[in-house]
Design a protein around this nucleic acid. Structure first.
Lengths: 335, 335
DNA sequence: GCTGGCAGTCGGTAACATCGAGTGCCAGCT
DNA sequence: AGCTGGCACTCGATGTTACCGACTGCCAGC
């Protein structure tokens, strides 16, 4: 839509603004590489860009800052995703080389990795458990009428739910139910627990089995608030200058369900980047989100992202998110 | 140490400052209830209080603000812990009345409750698992040479650890090891897993058993970074005016181990309140922490706290923390 | 059609006066 | 002896004014 010159001027404004967080004047733009016209020409072009909504002027005698539309154009014309800087690439490599242990820890530290790579806040949404096979089910009695059902999934995630038992039953009944359930459910997808399973012939045991099945069906991962891992939330403090904004963004990050929905939504819309209101949240008007899904065994699993101010370094953030999502998927596929 | 008049003047300054966050002048103090002397007298006394380190003056022509020592005196002379305001008491009651379900959820929402009651950030440290009996142990094979050991404790907490198996063993061996471990460990304290258990006679099985035991001993809860639940972290943004401080406090909250240690440390020193440097952390110099341990079955279990600015409403925060810790302990004891 | 030049705008900064909240001190009253 | 009213003084906050400089928009000329 924009001719080459306007495009390069817009690019220069965005890059300069990202770096300095100060309104950019025609002088600076004219001096920027890729712009070989005088500042007067730049002024004329910038006036047009402002009219068309790519730039804005805080006040008459100030330079321009990019609008949401301006950032959007910039992001859309970046072209190649770009590679990480050597140092960062090394950091990512080192991270996945020594990554091991619990999945939760892995996700947690991946979010911190993202934060470290970009100087903003990292977010990791684990794979939805619905499409993962159940590896083991165990029911453990806790009190006379409550038990805990612990489910291990094939991807090493562990779920637990407390179950209200229909009647005061003994440990032996619970144990029998546990074995029965393990036999019946091992191998089925977590999201496809059948409503009724084979009966055992013993009423008490069947009661326990039924209660557990019901809980497992009710808490199918897709419906449940899934966990999300946030790393580097403190960076939010330095990302925005208005205290109010900081507070609002932190509030968003505190609500796991909101964050999960947000990421999923952006990914589903096919976006790599959601800028300001594109996120669909008013409270994130000054923020931007760079996301990427990652695949495990060729299937889209979860997603990761970086949340920062609208004036974040998109090429860098996109490179970081792309690199981490690729390696994370790989890592999880390997097992 | 302070005579009645000085004490009441100090009290008035602290209360006023907590309310307005503005330096308090002699006029205001003189008008405060409990202070029945002229502003001139107040001025004289305030000069003394400043000399003795209870008050400070931001600049010559301003009022006084309390120092750490001033807050400390205030807190030490509050006397009765004070009751919650009716509305809040109702809120706490309602919360515990409908509390149910997973322990994690419970702790999570308790931290939010604390935050809601005080307008600051709530923190909940779950009971240390070391002194809790193991209710069930199960080993689940994931890949040829890795397995997951899932431990259910008597207090409904679930732990999981991945285990590197010594040799590629079949599912049957893992299953046998699992049963053997369950039989051997059920009932022992999580913190007292014995170094060697009875052998099974089968070398492969014993290999798996040994690996699991080693992991369980290595990850004894006391040594491990224990989880902590933080609610209302976004409140930090409005608690301090310097962005830098906000950022530092958020950083502290991001480090679970630091927070756990902090709370435990303060409780162990027998304090209910740690003000500024009393927390032992430079980055919390402008903050204060109100803590309380809670007891389950009469034993000290975990602790809860509220983190806010040094000028927080101590009576209110202490009442909230006391009430919640009492009811939380009660709730967990009931089971 | 680009560019240098120029008048004009307006935020930011500095210098300066003013205001007022608050202090320290002192003389006088009880 | 101790409290208090009074008073001079301090100093941040607020407002005024002037000025600087970074920009802009526009225009005439190359």
């Amino acid at each position: 839509m924009l001719d080459d010159r306007k495009a390069s001027i817009l690019r220069a404004v965005v890059q300069e603004y990202i770096e300095t967080a100060q309104p950019v004047g025609s002088g600076r733009v004219s001096a920027a590489p890729g712009v070989d016209v005088s500042s007067a020409t730049v002024r004329n072009e910038m006036a047009v860009l402002e009219n068309e909504g790519y730039l804005a002027q805080p006040h008459t005698s100030a330079g321009r800052i990019p609008t949401e539309k301006g950032y959007r154009y910039f992001v859309d014309t970046i072209g190649a995703p770009g590679a990480l800087r050597g140092e960062q690439a090394k950091q990512v490599k080192a991270f996945f080389a020594r990554a091991h242990g619990e999945l939760e820890e892995m996700f947690e530290s991946t979010s911190r990795l993202l934060s470290g790579l970009t100087a903003w806040t990292g977010v990791v949404v684990p794979p939805s458990a619905a499409d993962v096979a159940i590896r083991s089910v165990q029911v453990v009695g806790l009190a006379p009428s409550t038990a805990l059902v612990v489910t291990v999934l094939a991807d090493a995630m562990v779920e637990k739910h407390s179950v209200e038992l229909p009647a005061d039953v003994g440990d032996d009944v619970v144990a029998r139910a546990s074995l029965h359930l393990a036999a019946q459910l091992t191998g089925t997808m977590r999201g496809a627990v059948p409503a009724d399973v084979a009966t055992t012939g013993d009423a008490d045991t069947d009661g326990v089995v039924g209660a557990v099945i019901e809980v497992l069906r009710r808490t199918t991962p897709a419906d449940t608030a899934e966990e999300v891992f946030v790393g580097g939330a403190s960076r939010v403090a330095s990302a925005f200058d208005a205290v109010e904004t900081v507070q609002q963004v932190l509030s968003v990050l505190e609500e796991q369900l909101v964050v999960v929905t947000l990421l999923r939504d952006v990914v589903d819309r096919g976006l790599q980047v959601a800028i300001g209101t594109e996120t669909g949240m008013e409270t994130l008007a000054d923020a931007a989100l760079v996301v990427a899904p990652y695949t495990v065994d060729g299937e889209r699993a979860g997603s990761i992202g970086v949340l920062g101010p609208a004036r974040m370094n998109y090429p860098e953030a996109m490179a970081a998110v792309a690199a981490v999502s690729r390696r994370l998927g790989h890592h999880l596929t390997e097992g």
